[in-house]
């Protein structure tokens, strides 16, 4: 190869995009790099990524960014419209809505992270095992999946929260329990197309066990489309959490959860619109961000696009 590089930046780039990587690490990084290059060209996806990163930064720095304490009441200044003192106005207890939204970002991020870490993993394992093994294993696992799918998601989540008791942790558990079945279906469908591929036959001919084939060969191929789907679903998760909060079954007062904030603002929605509209706007922006990010990831990760 041409050893002379113009500067540090182009050496890095050449090292990453080489066709002859010298180590496992270089090969893996090179792959990630080419994915990033493809992702970067999609402007909307970059916008989505910025929104999601923005949510993370806001959540991390909430106490520094928020001008007021989220629980601090000021009954003299209740239901103030947006202005210089309170940029997004105040609610019926005189609390600063902007501060509550900023602290609420932590709750939203926690819900999203917990659901993303549980439901897709469960769905992925159930779906790939059912799809690869087939037969009665498939029948049993998929009928269980069907039972969960037969109920509307929110109703099922309501039932679980009602049984477990209201609260944000239980809301997360309820959302996770109700959202794995679609992932299992996707993973199974994907597995069915992969399991007949020659590279799976080749793995079987090397004596690989079913566990090795599922975890080492099938799961990596399903993960891509699942990540895309999970990202796209995050908007729905935020809305479900907000819905549970709205119904009083999710986050409990005085937690600044966005759905609960909308619920609190609904009595005044006609006269003091900002109380419900500002958290609604926050939900909208973050949902949009996840959707755009998901679309961009699909272009990069989905193997069908190769």
């Amino acid at each position: 190869m041409n050893g002379r590089a113009m500067n540090g930046g182009s050496t890095w780039r050449a090292w990453l995009s080489t066709d002859t990587p010298q180590s496992r690490m270089q090969a893996r990084l090179g792959r990630a790099w080419s994915g990033w290059l493809a992702f970067r060209r999609n402007r909307l996806a970059m916008a989505g990524l910025l929104i999601v990163l923005g949510l993370v930064v806001v959540a991390a720095l909430a106490p520094l960014l928020a001008p007021y304490h989220p629980y601090e009441q000021d009954l003299a200044n209740r239901l103030q419209p947006p202005g210089a003192l309170h940029w997004l106005g105040t609610d019926s207890f005189g609390r600063d809505i902007l501060s509550r939204l900023i602290h609420g970002a932590r709750l939203t991020l926690m819900i999203v992270a917990l659901v993303a870490a549980t439901a897709p993993v469960v769905g992925l394992l159930i779906g790939t095992v059912a799809g690869y093994l087939g037969g009665w294993v498939d029948a049993v696992l998929m009928r269980i999946t069907d039972i969960f799918l037969a109920f509307p998601k929110l109703i099922l989540a309501l039932a679980f929260v009602a049984a477990l008791g209201p609260g944000i942790e239980n809301a997360v558990i309820a959302i996770a329990i109700t959202s794995w079945p679609p992932y299992a279906r996707i993973a199974r469908a994907e597995t069915l197309t992969i399991r007949r591929a020659d590279f799976i036959s080749a793995a079987r001919l090397q004596g690989a066990s079913s566990a090795r084939i599922i975890l080492g060969h099938i799961v990596p191929l399903c993960v891509a489309s699942l990540i895309v789907r999970v990202t796209l679903d995050m908007a729905g998760v935020i809305l479900t959490a907000a819905g549970l909060g709205f119904l009083g079954l999710g986050a409990q007062p005085p937690l600044p959860e966005w759905g609960a904030m909308i619920a609190a603002g609904r009595q005044n929605v006609l006269e003091q619109w900002w109380v419900a509209a500002m958290p609604g706007l926050a939900i909208f922006v973050v949902s949009l961000g996840f959707n755009l990010l998901g679309d961009g990831l699909r272009d990069v990760l989905d193997p069908k696009g190769d």
């Binding site: 090969a27 591929a197 020659d198 590279f199 036959s201 080749a202 001919l205 090397q206 004596g207 060969h217």
Partner: peptide
């Protein structure tokens, strides 16, 4: 058995896992 007998497939595009180096 598989240490005795191995197989090569027709389609080299389908017989290698696309995400394994």
């Amino acid at each position: 058995f598989f240490k005795t007998c191995q197989m090569v497939f027709q389609d080299p595009y389908g017989s290698l896992h696309p995400r394994h180096p």
